[in-house]
């Protein structure tokens, strides 16, 4: 059956078949691995790897859902815990597991194989706070006080995944009603909303010439600031501001796509991502923590405090309520409705 369909497709001239089998990997736009790793996989498996980038993770999943009758990929990387419920409900994934490695405690993803995890949280510009003598906010509620007026920029949860993750954390941390009350106060206290992470970080954050010293970013960003600095820095110019209800833990995973043409190769790719080499290298190529237990952390990660706790809504709630939460947020914060 499988061979027959491959043959039919080839005959129809639909696939761009070369002599070697091709494994189509759908990823979000932040996927990045060293070229040598990709070449190594191609050599091991004898297959050609076609990486297809589908935009932001949410956009990518929707593209998979739309094309489920004629899947455009055999395996997908980048579905995270905010999306896995939707993906499973839409039936675009083949339940996938891997025998390689053991998960660290926090990292698991139903129906998919966890590859990495990280945290969305507030980042601050250290120099700005040192100069202003303002103490760092100690709670989320502090951010609604007049002293902290006009200091925060967040990404719009309707157009950005870190923005969505931060909204989800506040809902889990404060309860739905409490969270939206807080957002209302925050809006009145001069909250700035940016379209996406790049806009927030590079046009609004004081570190890069903007006017806001607090930004929603990732817990590994301070380490990346050191890694991508111009001169050797002894410490990061930014730091995590880990507030209760302001930290979201994100787990990203990989899974075979239902109806994919290369299930065996897809499984091989899943196992490859769990391998030690990839688990080590993804840390500084994608700025996430390895999901496999026992993998050494990159030395530069000492510049980023790893959060001890976080607040995530449960997977079921995220699957069923996210859309309603986002439209409520839009009504409240953007449309300025009571």
């Amino acid at each position: 059956m499988f061979k027959k369909s491959v043959l039919l497709l080839a005959l129809a001239g639909v696939s761009l078949t070369t002599l070697a089998a091709e494994l189509r990997v759908m990823t979000h736009s932040s996927f990045s691995l060293p070229k040598e790793r990709i070449a190594e996989f191609e050599k091991q498996s004898g297959a050609k790897l076609a990486i297809i980038k589908g935009g932001d993770a949410g956009e990518m999943l929707n593209k998979l859902i739309l094309t489920r009758a004629n899947p455009v990929a055999d395996v997908v990387y980048g579905i995270d815990n905010t999306l896995i419920g939707k993906a499973n409900a839409a039936g675009v994934l083949e339940p996938t597991s891997s025998k390689v490695g053991r998960n660290v405690a926090v990292a698991s993803l139903p129906g998919a194989v966890a590859i990495d995890y990280g945290y969305v949280t507030l980042n601050i510009d250290k120099a700005w706070f040192a100069g202003s003598k303002l103490p760092l906010p100690a709670t989320l509620d502090d951010l609604t006080r007049p002293a902290y007026k006009d200091l925060l920029v967040v990404e719009n949860p309707a157009t950005s995944s870190p923005g969505l993750a931060f909204l989800l954390a506040t809902i889990a941390g404060k309860g739905e009603e409490g969270a939206f009350q807080w957002w209302g106060k925050l809006r009145d206290n001069g909250l700035k909303v940016a379209k996406g992470w790049s806009e927030a970080y590079y046009t609004d954050f004081t570190r890069n010439g903007g006017a806001r010293p607090i930004v929603v970013s990732y817990a590994t960003s301070p380490a990346a600031e050191v890694f991508y600095s111009k001169e050797k820095l002894a410490e990061s110019p930014t730091a995590n501001l880990l507030l209760k209800g302001g930290v979201f833990m994100q787990v990203e995973g990989v899974a075979r796509v239902k109806g994919g043409l290369q299930p065996a190769l897809a499984q091989q790719f899943v196992d490859f991502l769990r391998g030690e080499a990839v688990q080590k290298e993804l840390q500084t190529s994608m700025w996430m923590y390895p999901a496999v237990a026992g993998v050494a952390l990159a030395p530069v990660f000492k510049h980023a405090a790893q959060p001890a706790s976080f607040s995530n809504p449960d997977l079921k709630a995220m699957q069923h309520k996210t859309a309603a939460w986002v439209s409520r947020w839009t009504r409240l914060v953007i449309k300025n409705a009571p």
């Binding site: 736009s29 932040s30 992470w197 790049s198 970080y201 590079y202 890069n208 970013s217 960003s221 990346a224 600031e225 050191v226 890694f227 991508y228 600095s229 111009k230 930014t238 700025w287």
Partner: peptide
């Protein structure tokens, strides 16, 4: 511009 750090900017 999708990553932090002065070198990226």
């Amino acid at each position: 511009l999708g990553r932090p750090g002065a070198a990226n900017l």
